[in-house]
Structure formats: C-alpha cells, structure tokens
C-alpha cells in the first residue's frame, strides 16, 4: 500500500468501455427501457430452465458487446460471501414458510423442501444475471448518454406535468459531483489525520462516540457541498435559467429501426421467460 488515503481509485462510477459494438450503438433511452423490462423478467422468472436461459443470455451479451467477461465476474466476486450466507439462511429458515411441498430433509426446526431448494438456487442465479446485465448496460453507455436517455424516456411524463428536464438535470449534477466530492473527502481525511484524528476509535459499544468520530469528515463535507451548491445556484440564476421553460437541444435525437427491434425482442423474450410453463 503506497497511500493510505487513495479514495478516488476505488470509485468506478461511470466506467465506460468504448468498443463500438452494436450494443454501444443502441439509442440510450430504448436501451434503458429494454434493460428495465429484462430486469423485471429476471425478477419474476422462478423456473430453473428460464433462469438457465437468462444466464446464457446475459453471458452472450458480453460477447455481443465485445466487453471482456472478467468485468462482469469482478462484480460477482465480492458478493460471493453474502450469497453463501443468504443461501444458507434461506435454506435453513425458509422451509416452514412454504408448507405442503416434498420434504427433503428435516431436523429440529430445520425443514428443507424442494421449493426452498429451488428458491435458493433461483435467487442466486437471478442475482448473477442482474449483475451481468447491469454491467453490460453501464459499461456500454457513457454517463452523458445515460442521462440523455433517461430524459427522453421520461418525456411522455411531461403530459402529467412531471418535470422531465429538471429531473435529468438533477441526475447530471449528482453524477458530475461525485468525483469532486471524492477528492474533497480524500483531502479532508488527510487534513484531519494530520491533526491527530483517528477514524474508528472507542469501544465497539460506544455508539455516540463512534458517530462523533466521523464529524471531522462529514460536517466539512456537507458544508463544502452546500457552498458549491450556492455557487452553482448563483451561476445558474445569473444566466437566467428558469425551470419549466421549453428549451432546445443542440444534439439531434434519433431513433433507428434497430432500436425498436431491440425493445420488441427484449419484451417478447421477457414475456416468454415469465409466462412459458417450463417443466422444471
């Protein structure tokens, strides 16, 4: 370890791998919508076969996007311990909740049935699928595309007076400021350590004291955030930004046929996965 405070290195928000594949070229709003539909499909599908198909599909996405699969796997790895613990808990405690199934094993309060085994395996698979699919989405879409996509996606909501433009502006500001605050945080940690701060002292049961230990960091962090906010408000108001006005965009918004195809195929695929009665 060379620096005890290199915070920025560990923050991978907005990581983007431009390979120029067809997945990269899909228009962001329909890509997002297709993603959402697919995630719903994954969340509902509870059959073994359906999940096997979904898993194969998620892995295939990496190939199509020409993104090395290890980016997806590195997202799964840190989750393994939790997955194992959760699986054990579901296995041990969920049996009673699903009465009337074939019992596989019974000992004391532990009851394992075919349906609790299925729950364990299916939740693990779902989890891996969602990690893989969302990795492909974020790795193939830049943050700018993502916010523009979100904006277009929400546009219909304008008719019910939903402030679409304002909303995407908020998201843009949030994403823009994460690296700034991470640097700020790093500087604060160093500055406070320089005057004797230690983070995480005190006995484990001293909640108040442990909480107060973080004050030298979080109080200045929030106040510098507020200062930046005030500056930005002033800058926007002095340039006569008025929320709710119609505005023009300098970039052309274009949806091609293949973007609609993507949406239709994903929707049909999700419907099939959810409603087809697989034997297993």
């Amino acid at each position: 370890m060379t620096s005890r405070f290199e915070l920025t290195r560990n923050i991978t928000i907005g990581q983007y791998i431009p390979t120029g594949s067809v997945i990269h070229q899909f228009e962001a709003s329909l890509k997002l919508l297709s993603f959402a539909i697919l995630v719903v499909g994954i969340a509902i599908c509870s059959s073994y076969t359906g999940n096997l198909i979904l898993l194969a599909f998620s892995i295939a996405l990496f190939g199509i996007a020409r993104i090395p699969i290890h980016y997806g796997i590195s997202g799964i790895k840190p989750a393994l311990p939790f997955m194992i613990i959760l699986s054990l808990m579901q296995l041990l405690f969920y049996g009673q909740a699903a009465q009337g199934e074939t019992t596989l094993f019974q000992f004391g309060f532990i009851l394992i049935t075919t349906s609790s085994v299925q729950l364990v395996i299916v939740s693990a698979m779902r989890f891996i699928e969602i990690i893989l699919v969302s990795s492909v989405l974020t790795l193939s879409t830049s943050t700018t595309e993502m916010t523009h996509g979100l904006e277009h996606l929400l546009k219909p909501l304008k008719y019910i007076k939903f402030p679409v433009y304002e909303f995407s502006l908020i998201i843009t500001i949030a994403i823009r400021f994460v690296p700034t605050f991470a640097m700020e945080m790093e500087k604060l940690m160093k500055a406070q350590a320089s005057r004797g701060a230690e983070f995480g002292t005190g006995k484990w049961w001293q909640i108040v004291r442990k909480t107060k230990d973080t004050f030298p960091l979080i109080i200045p962090l929030f106040s510098s955030a507020m200062e930046r906010a005030e500056d930005l408000i002033l800058a926007m108001e002095s340039r006569c930004y008025t929320p709710g006005l119609k505005r023009t965009s300098y970039r052309q918004y274009k949806i091609a046929l293949r973007d609609f195809l993507l949406l239709i195929i994903t929707t049909l695929f999700s419907i099939f996965i959810v409603f087809y009665k697989f034997t297993y």
């Binding site: 502006l169 998201i171 949030a174 994403i175 400021f177 994460v178 507020m226 408000i233 926007m236």
Partner: peptide
C-alpha cells in the same frame, strides 16, 4: 441544485 449535490 441541492437535490443534485446531496444525491452526489
């Protein structure tokens, strides 16, 4: 702006 900054 405040929603954006606190979101960050």
């Amino acid at each position: 702006v405040i929603a954006g900054v606190l979101g960050a």
